[in-house]
């Protein structure tokens, strides 16, 4: 809209951004106080100088590095797996004609409504049977492919790759796989990057399944945070320093790839 925004618009936006940042600041604020000050409820407005000390204590009371490594591993592997399998399938649904395409796609879309909780009991039994319970692999397994991923890639590729292009390549005697690799894959890259980011974040923040699947000495970062918070004797400065610390990796990702994330959300929206 070609309107010049006024002071009011900036003011409202700034207020909202402030509200978005405030809880994070609060977390850092309490995390930087001594135990005593943090326990009294309302701390001073400026951070104290104890963040590093508190963070150190938090790392000592949970297997922080191991949890971080697990979270990184699980999120990266699943994100790559989702991108790979879903780009393949999404391309087929978008551009290739084959019998059963319509019904299969409807099936995929319908299963997007299936809550993950529904699968938890059998997945748990399955993991126990296979002896995988407690391993990081058991946390990855439910996320290796997602219906959303296929749907997302399909929506993107429908428009991103013109049919004429594929037709032309095929006229030239190109096999399917070559068309896929040389035409579809390059075109899919922006969407693949976004899907990768999304999956990474989704798996990183997941809590229910890792809580059940993993033992306390081999947690993901979310499960470790839960351990930090639960206790008979609670130290707010430590808990919030740990929480801040655990948020930093995604904040870094956000700073590096926030622009892509924004455009990804907006692109996905128009297609969806």
């Amino acid at each position: 809209m070609s309107r010049r925004p006024g002071f009011l618009v900036y003011g409202l936006l700034a207020a909202f951004v402030l509200g978005s940042a405030a809880p994070l600041y609060w977390s850092f604020l309490l995390g930087s106080q001594t135990k005593e000050v943090a326990a009294q409820g309302v701390p001073p407005l400026l951070p104290g100088g104890h963040f590093m000390a508190n963070a150190q204590r938090a790392m000592d009371s949970i297997p922080f590095w191991k949890a971080l490594g697990n979270s990184l591993l699980v999120s990266t592997v699943t994100a790559c797996s989702v991108v790979f399998f879903c780009t393949l399938a999404g391309y087929a649904f978008a551009k290739l004609r084959f019998r059963g395409r319509g019904p299969l796609l409807v099936f995929v879309v319908a299963t997007m409504a299936v809550p993950t909780q529904l699968g938890v009991v059998p997945l748990f039994i399955l993991m126990a049977e296979l002896g995988w319970a407690g391993t990081t692999f058991s946390v990855m397994l439910p996320w290796l492919v997602t219906a959303f991923g296929v749907f997302f890639m399909r929506q993107y590729l429908v428009d991103a790759v013109p049919d004429e292009l594929i037709e032309a390549a095929r006229m030239d005697g190109c096999s399917q796989i070559r068309v896929f690799l040389t035409v579809a894959v390059p075109a899919a890259r922006p969407a693949a990057a976004i899907l990768w980011l999304f999956t990474f974040m989704q798996v990183w923040t997941d809590f229910f399944w890792p809580l059940i699947a993993l033992p306390p000495d081999n947690p993901t970062i979310q499960v470790a945070l839960n351990q930090l918070q639960s206790g008979y004797f609670k130290d707010f400065s430590l808990v919030l320093a740990g929480t801040t610390l655990a948020t930093i990796p995604l904040l870094i990702l956000f700073v590096l790839a926030g622009r892509q994330l924004v455009s990804g959300i907006m692109q996905g929206a128009v297609k969806g």
Binding site: R3, P23, L250, F254
Partner: peptide, 26 residues
């Protein structure tokens, strides 16, 4: 037509990268 459009958009997305567990604790 905002000045610093991308920055505004990124700023409002900030809470999205905080995990539900961290949100619940805070």
């Amino acid at each position: 037509q905002l000045r610093g459009r991308t920055l505004w958009r990124m700023s409002i997305l900030l809470p999205f990268v905080v995990s539900p567990v961290a949100v619940a604790i805070i």
